[in-house]
Design a protein around this nucleic acid. Structure first.
Lengths: 206, 206
DNA sequence: TGTACATCAGTGAACGCGCGTTCACTGATGTAC
DNA sequence: TGTACATCAGTGAACGCGCGTTCACTGATGTAC
């Protein structure tokens, strides 16, 4: 609980975003309620309107913060793998999953809340930055493939994005009654490994 | 509009399921409303309780019907590919995407509504049947791989499931403002192709 | 340092709404005689 | 074929609820003098 300083909250805007993220994580994007977020921040629902235009604007801010963290993590992972294109690529894939696991509320707000990335110019920009890292990694990776059997770089990044997203949605959520047959990290690691062999970028015996 | 036969509806139960599917497709699993489904079926909300225990029970029935169709399609696709393990495997992957595209309401009810497959024994059984087809296909496929470099069959099916699901969620939905860089069918086809090469089941020059 | 005042973050009551669910009821249907 | 009756699918009114949002307000904060 954030310490209240008497009448004024001090940092209500961020407290509301944090509460929203927690609720989105717990109840899903549509189970999330403006009133409940306000209550959790120790404040009347009406107070929310001092900081946000409404419910959707609050979700949008949560998604925006998520994209910012996500983009940073992806860039960090990419740089960590440099100068090897392969290492950078694998590193960003791992970072994707790590982000989804560590920031589930942000992840849901970003990808399942129904908020369009075009909702705000800022949102479009920062989501483009995150996706751009993945595409750059895929692009540099593709350069190592003979041109005549090289798939478009954007297709490679789309494949990996889909695989990451699928692993997150199906196997990384702690849905009750759903037992994952393998740890999601292993699933993603091995899936990407097989995929990279298929591209001819890893030797068959590695 | 279903033709009403006077006072009694005739087939209200199925009409409600159909309305629910249409609404789930249009508004998402949580945007779906029991009252609205009743209205669309030309009936008072209270009438729903003659056929279902409540809102969740209605969604559950929609998901159940979806799993049944899904399992049938997967089995059909599997059989069509026989006796080639490879052809069966690719065929089921295609069937997965085709199902998601053709029955989006069912797909959402099944995978995004928050209904657990353990909600009902029937539901668990029929969802197991659908998933079983994919696992069988993966298992037979794995038999063609030298044992020392063979990943577990359940891992292979999990990879493909994740890839299919990711493609559906990210690229097969007509989300406004989201333009898919490639047709989802191409994306899945090429992704599975590369994956199978990685498993050594397709020759590099094919 | 002390006072007057403008600012503006948060209050609390109210709104209209649609939700899921219940209940006693009604009247169409189909069966028994 | 015609009548009496049991069944039960659907009605319509009502409920309590929590939602997002609005509004006039209040009182803590910080600045100007």
């Amino acid at each position: 609980m954030v310490k209240k300083r008497g009448y004024h909250h001090g940092n209500l805007r961020q407290a509301l975003v944090d509460a929203a993220l927690q609720l989105i994580e717990a109840k899903g994007p549509t189970g999330f309620t403006l009133s409940e977020a306000a209550k959790q921040a120790g404040v009347t629902p009406a107070a929310v309107y001092r900081h946000f235009a409404g419910r959707e604007d609050l979700i949008s801010e949560a998604a925006l913060q998520g994209y910012a963290v996500f983009a940073d993590l992806m860039e960090y992972a990419y740089n960590k793998g440099q100068p090897s294109a392969l290492a950078s690529f694998e590193s960003t894939g791992r970072a994707y999953l790590a982000f989804a696991c560590k920031y589930p509320g942000h992840y849901v707000a970003m990808f399942e809340s129904g908020i369009s990335v075009n909702h705000t110019p800022e949102l479009a920009q920062v989501s483009g930055r995150a996706l751009g890292v993945l595409e750059k990694a895929a692009s540099e990776l593709s350069a190592n493939i003979p041109p005549e059997k090289r798939p478009p770089a954007r297709m490679v990044s789309a494949h990996i994005w889909a695989l990451c997203h699928g692993v997150v949605e199906l196997f990384a959520r702690g849905a009750p009654g759903t037992k994952s047959p393998f740890p999601p990290e292993d699933l993603l690691e091995s899936g990407i490994g097989i995929y990279l062999r298929g591209l001819g970028l890893i030797k068959p015996d590695e």
